[in-house]
Amino acid sequence: MIRDALGIAIASGAYAVSFGAISTAAGLTLLQTCALSVLMFTGASQFALVGVVGAGGSVWAGAATAALLGSRNALYGVRLSSILDRSGLRRLLAAHFVIDETTAMAIAREAPAESRFAFWATGVVLFVFWNLGTLAGALATHFVPDPKVFGLDAAPPAAFLALLAPRLRAREPMAIAFAAGVVALVCLPFVPAGVPLLIVAVLVAVFGVLRSGR
């Protein structure tokens, strides 16, 4: 199990390197970049915030997008609440580690004790590698005068694509993804930067609620 956790952590450490690089290229300082990895610690939301800022949007539009992307972690918490302690200080710390990887590792085990161990082992190891990777990536680009020379402006969409791909296993999410991309581009010339994302979020929420109400 430790070996699985290490494998996941090393893979995400590499992914954190690209986050650190993209974040500093987007104009965040080294300290802001590292603060995101320490305090936010949920990859897609971090990429979204720096992606919006890098594209010229306000940090508040980026923050709203990050929070919307973080909503899925609340669902993970529900699944994990039967495994983890529901009270005390430990729950406050556990909450910080409620992300895709720890949830997947925890719910893959049958026995509650094993689940709990998988959750904490993955969370702690991942946290260390995630932050080391971020620092390495941020340092690497901190002194690059023009990120465009290294194609760093093309890195965020590729990162989003790599995050999106595993969620596209059925026809419906593919249709939703396509529609969301089109809607965002249609809105873009007319509203402040970052706002197309919020319009897309509202539309998909309305769609989701209407559809499941049927």
Binding site: F160, L163, P173, V182, G208
Partner: peptide
């Protein structure tokens, strides 16, 4: 559905 739509919108706009 929210991450699917948001990630796709981020890809398109970026």
């Amino acid at each position: 559905l929210v991450p699917v739509a948001l990630l796709a919108a981020l890809i398109a706009t970026n």
